[in-house]
Design a protein around this nucleic acid. Structure first.
Lengths: 212, 212, 212, 212
DNA sequence: GATGAATGAGCTTTCATTCAT
DNA sequence: TATGAATGAAAGCTCATTCAT
């Protein structure tokens, strides 16, 4: 019964996280009480506090998990063998497609990061954050580093070849991840329709913005 | 004191709006109860409901006011006599500087727009929204139209001269207003430092993104 | 300007009472705040407290007025010259028709009398109340005495002739005024339809109930 | 304690209903805030909303329960074996005695039914309501039907024997249940004193009112 | 691990009443 | 007389968290 318990325990925890994700995406952070998470996940009100210290802890755990999985997925698709410019394009498309495929997660990120005093944890937006995380071995573990390393490395390589304009890292982040995630959210919400051709154009526009 | 009252349209109402703005900027929407707004504005709990129907109404009124004043300010600085490309640059800088000069308002906008089901009211982001507002004489009155007309007109003029890439309006909006506002918010929060030279570079990068 | 002021003063007071009557009839006592009475009567919130000490006082004044007018109207139609049994019948019909013609007033009475600790003031229902009022020169003045005298007198005369069963006064009241008012309310609400013939039958049934 | 819980269906819920009943009987609906119910029942403010959706729901539940128990009690005492006229008398006395034995419940009913727009739910007063309930299998379940069936059946039987005057059902209801409940309420409030002999007289008077 | 009844502080909102004008 | 902005206590209700079972 060892293995089964292991599985069951994760399943309850998983159900809670999943319910929180869905409900926050549907109703927003403010309108997602614990009782609702409890109902949707079919977990009792009490047991949630066995898995998480508090609502804040539950939300933070979910946030970390989403960030980690997104990093992993994007890093996994990254091929350092490709030519530099091509690498940028495919990284941009990776981000866009990941965001498009995970609309609930994207809404959650936006909700969570809009809490004042939380963005400090670690934002998606600034490359500098990632660079710093990288340098100070950030506490969230090696998984997040994958994406950070990829991006930071790519920017460094492009800089080394003098292919980039002289722009602050944050600005570059805004023109790449920022624009990609925002447009993906709009796509997911049906506010924009972008086919594969249009997408390549947009990726190209991003490149034009930052390329020397 | 007759005339004075007429002019200032109730300083109590103003104090309430100002308190709400500050507190939401400081603590976030979730952590700004009416009792706090009441205390900060030195207004009784009850009188707020004399001026606003509900908390939602207060927040919506504040949102509209911020959007309106921002539109006015940006449109006021717009000079249609300048050459086209120069016009784009100065419009972009107007937006950025306005956002930078009004950090509390920017935090409030971010907070307010992160409520699910509210962004639909009218977002800054898509040019299409503005075009539509323009066409259907949007309900928020002529003040908002100023900004919409300016931007829509500029994009139309640039398109007419074949100066723009073939990109959806939303994408253009993201590369212009989107990036400007986001970077301004980061500047205001002290997350990025951008001097005048760097700023011109960023404006130029935006232009590169959308220019043919 | 003397006379005009007299008129105007009564008009404002009248408007307030009338608004209170309508609103209580429409929404019930619980859902009739002073602000609503103020709006409907086009009187400011403050001025109401010039005419009435409190909400309770306003309501009590309205109650007294309704009771007084009802007494007057019913007593006015009473003809002590008619034969005894005929007198009973026409008194019963007077009550019924008055109630039918004043549905708002009837609802108000029901609302007001349902407040615990208020029915003591003076109820419509018990003949004994009226008898007592009569004996102790009740404080509400001579107008209410009219009805009390009429009813009490009629019962006394009927008793003297040994035409009534040996029933407590309250029971007789219930079979006469009680049933009349209740059926009138139902008629006004459209719950029963009673033509003149049916009405005479009901009056007769009342008589059968109390007659020896 | 399993089985016991099943049986008593939460003593907390019971305590809340009981507290509400007492307080409304003592102070009236308007002057019975939830905080008072909470204090009297020794339940926290929050738990009430675990058992009832709202104050309205709590009140409606209490109303239904009182009506249901009253129906059950009266129907239980009814003996269809007795002769017709005797049946009427004993039914009338059942109603009266039940009302007399449950003064708090009677005050509550009067309070609750005085709310505009609530009486429609289901009134005691009209026999027609009961007839309709009977025909359309009313939603409150079989318990209420007991009383409805009893009364409707009795009136039908009396009519079949041509023992009743030609009066609308509502009028008959007013002369029977209406008078019984009203007098019982007055008795309970100490406004009338009726001994067993007087009571039989009143029941007889009711019969005289409706009998041919 | 698991339940869900219970808590109580705190939320938004209402409303009788007052008071400066 | 008359106004209506202002007050503040109190209302109904929510919800993160605890705890006996």
């Amino acid at each position: 019964m060892r293995a089964e318990e292991q599985v069951q325990k994760s399943e309850k925890r998983e159900a809670i996280l999943q319910a929180a994700l869905e409900l926050v995406a549907e109703n927003g952070l403010q309108h997602t009480p614990m009782s609702m998470i409890s109902k949707r996940s079919r977990a009792s009100a009490g047991i949630i506090y066995h898995y998480f210290e508090s609502k804040d802890d539950l939300l933070a755990s979910l946030y970390q998990r989403i960030k980690r999985e997104m990093s992993r997925a994007i890093a996994a698709r990254y091929d350092p063998q490709q030519p530099l410019v091509k690498r940028f394009q495919s990284l941009w498309l990776s981000m866009f497609h990941y965001a498009l495929a995970h609309p609930k997660e994207m809404v959650f990120l936006e909700q969570y990061e809009s809490i004042p005093g939380v963005k400090q944890h670690e934002g998606v937006k600034t490359l500098q954050d990632m660079a710093e995380d990288w340098q100070r071995k950030n506490p969230f573990g090696a998984e997040n580093d994958l994406e950070a390393q990829v991006l930071h490395g790519l920017v460094r390589d492009l800089s080394a070849q003098d292919l980039l304009k002289d722009l602050p890292l944050e600005v570059i982040g805004e023109f790449t991840m920022g624009v990609a995630l925002r447009l993906a959210r709009q796509s997911a919400a049906g506010l924009v329709k972008l086919d594969e051709a249009a997408l390549n154009n947009v990726a190209r526009a991003c490149w034009d913005a930052i390329a020397r």
